[in-house]
Design a protein around this nucleic acid. Structure first.
Lengths: 208, 208
DNA sequence: TTCCTTACGCTACGACCCGTAGCGTAACTG
DNA sequence: CAGTTACGCTACGGGTCGTAGCGTAAGGAA
């Protein structure tokens, strides 16, 4: 996470971990105040009480900085066992939606994804810092459902991985699209309808 | 679409519709070559063979310009009747995925959505120019499925609209997320798995 | 035709942001 | 203590933005 890892730096003055924290904190604050497009690296450095050169020693630019600044927010996501697959899905949907309600993530998430379409290293950074964190919840929820007998265990491990990826894209994609593209709230009612659709399918969801 | 609408301009020299077309075409070409972040308004004007001031007379800035330039690509989307709801879903998924494979849309779509989180007028422009165009397909597919007897007719028109919105967010969201966030291809196999999930639900999709 | 109005191409401009270089100083190591 | 790296600061060239001002071009109205 923080670029000041003493494992690589043996001698000389060590990187200030306080500067790391101040920079990331300032980045989040300015994302709230200004949004992605008006955020400048110089502003972040000033707000953090740090020289611009200090910031550039740690991050290559705005993209990488914002990814790291926002990534920690995804640690809030957790998968409490709610007793059934449907309840777990609904819970994770509402948690993820709450995260996307925050102005930092709202303005930053799609922006860095857009940038990543032309920058492979940025895409990998997003994957490891953000995407994998969310996907863990899906894998965990699936395992719980299998233990409950709500879902079958897959024989083929490759098919199981593909299935988990599919579920992940459907859940995360629907919430993101609803929030940022359709720009309508993910409330309990929507989460309930979505969960029903996911559990029962198009035809089945109409008959509940 | 094109900002040169003679309805408002009565007297004086009319706007050049050729300039409109050249600007939008140049925008798409430079989106392919440079991507969203490195695209500059000055470059577009030069490529279009037009003065920068001419461009600014028509569009407020990069955001609005790119939305209009990309919007026409969504006219390609069409809903041919494939005989069943599942086939229609799979068809529309593959069509939308093909659109997202194009470098113009790939780099531009999420970027303007990200911008729109802080710009209401841009959000409305995206909605009318892009989102509504896609949503029509969902509404049409639903009506066909109802006519076939695959889906029930809803009594409450408000519930029907919510249901269509939900389906739209699920389909479009999953395809976008798979393509741009997970950065993996939407091929026939994925489309088939997704369609099965949407038709049968989580448990049902495992038993096909 | 002659006027009036608006669009066009061109140039120039201040403002802003980027990313880096160079310097003297600070902090930690052997 | 000497060696090494980080820090704050200043300054800079390069690029983009969005606008103003000019003379000219292309239509409509008297």
């Amino acid at each position: 996470m923080s670029p000041s890892d003493p494992a690589t730096t043996r001698t000389g003055r060590p990187r200030s971990t306080a500067a790391d924290a101040a920079i990331l904190e300032a980045t989040r604050a300015l994302l709230v105040e200004l949004g992605w497009s008006k955020l400048t690296v110089g502003d972040v450095a000033t707000r953090a009480g740090v020289a611009k050169t200090t910031l550039y020693r740690r991050w290559a630019g705005k993209n990488e900085l914002v990814v790291d600044a926002v990534a920690v927010l995804f640690d809030e996501l957790e998968m409490t066992d709610r007793g059934s697959l449907a309840a777990d899905v609904q819970g994770v949907v509402l948690q993820f939606a709450a995260l996307l309600e925050r102005p930092e993530t709202r303005t930053a998430l799609m922006a860095v994804v857009a940038e990543s379409t032309r920058d492979d290293s940025l895409r990998r950074r997003i994957r490891s810092a953000i995407v994998e964190r969310q996907k863990r919840l899906v894998v965990l929820g699936r395992e719980r459902a299998q233990a409950r007998g709500e879902l079958r265990y897959e024989d083929d491990p490759s098919a199981a991985a593909h299935h988990a990826d599919l579920i992940f894209d459907v859940i995360a994609g629907a919430v993101v699209h609803r929030t940022l593209v359709s720009a309508e709230p993910v409330d309990a009612a929507w989460a309930s309808s979505f969960t029903a659709l996911l559990m029962l399918g198009l035809a089945g969801a109409q008959d509940r």
